[in-house]
Design a protein around this nucleic acid. Structure first.
Lengths: 255, 255
DNA sequence: GTCCGTCCTTGATCTGAATCATGGGATGCG
DNA sequence: CGCATCCCATGATTCAGATCAAGGACGGAC
């Protein structure tokens, strides 16, 4: 119930150009044509780390996108086992249009700012603006592809490959965000605790810790503290991740 | 490259009412409004079991839906490990609009008949017909939810829970298709080999076999041959599947 | 500063599922 | 028919990762 959790509500007529998501390539529903209308109905909400944004089965009143921070989508089995089924970064869409109830929990893993719309209003706009809906479809198709990639990781990869794959994903994000080369020397932060990593990879916290140590000892990465990583042998890391063959990877420094 | 594999191409002007998918609730893009246009551009293709419909990275020329049979979507790692990331049943959509290349293989696991459209033609129609696109969005959102449910299975469930979950999914499908009660006594077939089941559940063939035997010994199911299953204790099977709490399950015989 | 709590690492042990190995029952074919 | 092949079940053994256990590093409260 995001509406109840408002801690940083802003005036409604704020310009969308103030909204950080607008500056990202993935922000595909804040397009010029619909900007004014979206602008008029959006609002902002802040969440503290660990805070639940929506719970499974709750009525979803709002949907929108992450402005800053990282959100985890998770499912919890009745005995407490947890699986993080997706991570959302700034610009990513959150919420389930055309459904009354959320199919999974959304939890803030860092301080999070959301840019939200009331579901009914957003759905109205969707039906009136085919182009908006088209972009949402493309985003959803991309998410589906990503989810299926992750299924391969969960079902078939070893612990080492899982951790290496996770680091590769983070490194790719960092390279795009910082307009940097995806190559040795690139530094980035792990935005999750060991616990959250484990629950994203289908492992335990101890195994994650051990594998990270091992990747460091194998000279594939530098580790400074628990969250600061620097690539030491990206090519090696990619091999350790189990899916080499992704050599359509234009970002890689081929030197 | 489906176009090359044509074994059952039919005349273009066949009425859509001949198309079996039209009679299914899930066939959401053969709606009356667009029926004539879709009718004019569709064609049929048959595939033998084991036949590849599209390969990962191949240019996707066609997309459409499954008319009969079962299709597996799979990814293969470079060393041969395989993960089936989705099963498609009659009425399910297949193909990746707005992308040049297929993100995963599609393989026929039974004899399959497809109802296909050339990608460019279908995409044209999508942009002209917002309602068509809307329905595709809803289907994609549902697939995404299903994929994330499966991630919980792959990441956090035991072998027994995985196999039980798989049977529950099949039982649900059978109940819907046959308009039957989802209750003890319901009989259905497993459309996959032990091998394919294993690769869908992230297990080995031996473990699948053992768990099925165990579920039989525990009096949760009857097993007649390798593929014929009859529910003996659905409630128990659901508990064994790890996600009870799904008691919004209106299909369940509450007696 | 001390105390406490949270997060992370590392070692020792255990176990669920993989792997290795064998045989049985279909089905197809020369 | 005999033989080969494929698919499945099941027993024996191994091993990757979970579990159990201990301790270190950091940060906040007081």
């Amino acid at each position: 119930m995001p509406d109840e959790n408002v801690t940083g509500l802003r005036p409604v007529h704020q310009r969308c150009s103030d909204c950080p998501i607008r500056h990202r390539a993935v922000c595909s529903y804040c397009a010029p044509a619909q900007l004014a209308e979206l602008d008029a109905i959006k609002f902002y909400v802040d969440y503290a780390p660990g805070r639940e944004i929506v719970g499974t089965g709750e009525p979803t009143k709002s949907l929108g996108s992450v402005v800053s921070g990282v959100v985890a989508l998770q499912k919890i089995l009745s005995d407490g086992r947890r699986q993080i089924v997706g991570l959302l970064f700034p610009g990513d869409f959150i919420g389930r249009p055309f459904e009354q109830r959320a199919p999974y929990d959304a939890v803030a893993v860092t301080p999070v700012k959301m840019c939200l719309f009331r579901r009914s209003q957003f759905e109205d706009l969707l039906t009136r603006e085919p182009e908006l809906e088209h972009r949402l479809l493309e985003m959803t198709l991309n998410e589906l592809d990503a989810a299926r990639d992750w299924m391969v990781l969960l079902g078939r990869k070893t612990a080492r490959e899982k951790v290496a794959s996770f680091l590769v994903v983070l490194a790719r994000r960092a390279a795009v965000l910082e307009q940097a080369r995806l190559a040795d020397g690139l530094a980035f932060q792990i935005p999750l605790s060991r616990d959250a990593i484990a629950e994203h990879l289908g492992l335990t916290i101890e195994t994650v810790s051990r594998q990270l140590t091992q990747l460091r000892k194998d000279a594939l990465i530098h580790l400074d503290g628990a969250r600061d990583v620097r690539l030491r042998d990206y090519r090696g890391l990619l091999e350790a991740s189990g899916d080499d063959g992704d050599w359509d990877d234009t970002l890689v420094d081929s030197a």
